[in-house]
Design a protein around this nucleic acid. Structure first.
Length: 565
RNA sequence: CGGGGCGUAGCGCAGUUUGGUAGCGCACCUGGUUUGGGACCAGGGGGUCGCAGGUUCGAAUCCUGUCGCCCCGACCA
């Protein structure tokens, strides 16, 4: 590729709307352009890199027996009604009508399409197990796209679906996919990816893992234990609560004017947060009954856990109309439970000498002992894990980190095969419902993660496996005939073996170097008058590890050494 | 969906308070001088100031509505 012909302007100023390194450099380097919120065009550099990623994924899927297919982007709503997801999935699913008024959906994932195909093509146990996959455009009407290619509405995804005749077989294959994913991340040059247990969300089913690229800018929160290897999404993370035993004290009501939150209460009474009890109120989406959740004052409610316990979505209560609660002073002692639901977190179990609201404006109660003063039948786990909590497996302090989800795998079981009536004949001639697994990787997001993990202050440092171009030739002193002649000759010669870019614009050295930094080719060849006079050219690597002078006739060999090592 | 911010040339911004011929830097085009980290001189092109109404002799500027984009939260394979 001649740089003078490469479409896509590169610029030096940081775009006002970009904050993540991958977003900034992809805009500055002419990799992507936004068309609409969360919808991007990929320009040649990004497309070249994404094709390389796709190819790596394809090879690894093929290596575990995958068969590539291509499902439609537009699907009839009937299929989604069969699985029940037409109604259960929210506005993330883009629904539309065709010209004759039929309900259609834009595919955001393809379980339905996979079962539609598989149920009519695989009717005998002899055909099992099998896995089909595709690399295809998905559309999800995300409430909030952000971060360039990190979180978008339209994107390319590799999604795979496996079908099995037993849970053991599903689990064995699940492990094979997990290993294949590890190889994929390694091959694209992404370090710091860990597989963590995750919530199954709208996918349903049993076991699930998310592959998290650990990064401070990530939008998911992960809980880790360095000691025993426990790692989990914050959404489902558990910890054991440290207790500091305290002698029981007599209960006493205290006047606490204007003290409406834990922070004020601890200051007012000069006690630590864990000697208080906190009340948080939510409303159920299904029947709107307020739910009062009590946790120890130093903890917070994990809404995903709460959602699972209640079996319905919850929202923090904002409409106090008609709710008989003394907000700011809600306490567990002598609380009027009429018309509300009350939950107690396990952090409160056995606690003594706590301060909590008195259910009366401007009053709190000191010295509440949970076993002595409250009649609680059941404690539940609804607390959010925090940094330093004890690991439930080994007791070591837990760490909390941010991460970007770079892939996920699910054991779906029979959720889709059953609802969509997929069956096969087993060796005894009886009909059985197969088990299913599904496995996704977002290609664009993976590309963005690779950039997040491989850049300096000037631009991407692409790993050889995904670099849009492997070699970038700069011709300084462009007007010099010897240099132009050599530049084009090397371009031809090296271009036979490697993806090569030639800067033929005659730009100033600084401009050429800055653009080479943004395009991030692993190997850079610099031709200049001063070196050519000595019959030499300079070869450097984008990561700055190699900077060497070689005779003109040895360039090809040296580049080969660098790229093959 | 809630809170906040912003829409003026491809990018980054000033001008809006106090209405009076739309500006700056980078990028782009032409000619010349340059050439090892975003050069210099001279000339040039490009904007219905997001859109629609309204007020006014006159609106980027004031008023009303609307659309879009960004950030935080909610949400989320």
């Amino acid at each position: 590729m001649l740089l003078s012909k490469l479409l896509g302007e590169r610029f030096k100023e940081k775009p006002a709307d970009a904050f993540m390194a991958s977003h900034i450099f992809m805009l500055r380097g002419g990799y992507i352009r936004q068309v609409s919120n969360g919808i991007f065009t990929l320009l040649p550099p990004a497309r070249r890199a994404s094709r390389k990623i796709e190819q790596i994924i394809r090879e690894e899927m093929d290596a575990i027996g995958g068969q590539e297919v291509l499902f439609p982007v537009v699907l009839p709503a009937e299929l989604w009604k069969e699985s029940g997801r037409f109604d259960s999935v929210g506005s993330e699913l883009l629904r539309l009508k065709d010209r004759s008024g039929h309900d259609m959906v834009l595919g955001m994932t393809h379980e339905e399409a996979a079962v539609h195909l598989a149920r009519s093509e695989a009717k005998s146990y002899l055909q099992y197990p099998f896995m089909i996959y595709q690399i295809q455009t998905k559309f999800r009407d995300e409430p909030r796209a952000r971060g360039g290619l990190i979180r978008v509405r339209e994107f390319t995804m590799k999604d795979a679906y496996s079908f099995h005749t037993s849970q053991e077989d599903l689990e064995a294959y699940y492990q094979k996919v997990l290993d294949a994913y590890d190889r994929i991340y390694k091959r694209v040059g992404l370090r710091n990816v860990i597989a963590i247990e995750s919530d199954t969300g709208m996918m349903g089913g049993g076991k699930a893992h998310e592959f998290m690229y650990l990064s401070g800018g990530g939008e998911d929160t992960i809980v880790l234990c360095d000691q025993c290897g426990y790692q989990s999404n914050m959404e489902v993370a558990v910890s054991s609560i440290q207790k500091e035993p305290c002698e029981e004290q007599p209960m006493e009501e205290v006047h606490t004017p204007g003290v409406r939150d834990i922070e004020a209460l601890t200051k007012f009474l000069s006690i630590p947060e864990f000697r208080t009890m906190k009340a948080t109120v939510f409303s159920r989406r299904d029947n709107k009954i307020p739910v009062v959740v009590f946790v120890r004052g130093d903890l917070q409610v994990n809404e995903v856990k709460l959602k699972k316990i209640l079996g319905t979505e919850v929202d923090p209560l904002t409409d106090y109309e008609g709710v008989d609660l003394c907000f700011g002073f809600i306490g567990a002692y002598h609380l009027n439970m009429e018309g509300i639901q009350v939950l107690y977190d396990k952090s409160l179990e056995g606690e003594t000498n706590l301060a909590c609201g008195a259910n009366r404006k401007d009053y709190h109660i000191k010295g509440v002992s949970v076993p002595r003063d409250l009649d609680i039948r059941e404690f539940v786990d609804v607390a959010r894990v925090k940094e330093g909590d004890a690991c439930v497996k080994c007791g070591s302090p837990l760490k909390v980190r941010r991460g970007i989800e770079a892939g996920n795998i699910f054991q779906l079981g029979t959720k889709y095969t059953k609802s969509m009536g997929m069956q096969y004949m087993d060796e005894n001639g009886t009909l059985q419902t197969p088990l299913m697994g599904c496995y996704g990787i977002g290609v664009g997001r993976l590309l963005a993660c690779v950039l997040e993990d491989n850049h300096d202050e000037y631009g991407p440092i692409w790993p050889k496996s995904v670099a849009p171009w492997l070699i970038h030739i700069c011709m300084l002193n462009d007007t010099n005939e010897g240099i132009r002649e050599l530049g084009f000759r090397l371009y031809q010669e090296l271009g036979q073996r490697w993806d090569t870019l030639l800067d033929d614009r005659g730009a100033a050295a600084g401009v050429q170097f800055a653009d080479a930094d943004l395009l991030g080719a692993p190997v850079r060849i610099i031709l200049s008058k001063r070196n050519l006079a000595k019959g030499q050219v300079e070869i450097t690597t984008r990561d700055k590890r190699i900077k060497t002078m070689v005779p003109v006739e040895e360039v090809s060999q040296k580049v080969g050494e660098i790229l093959d090592q």
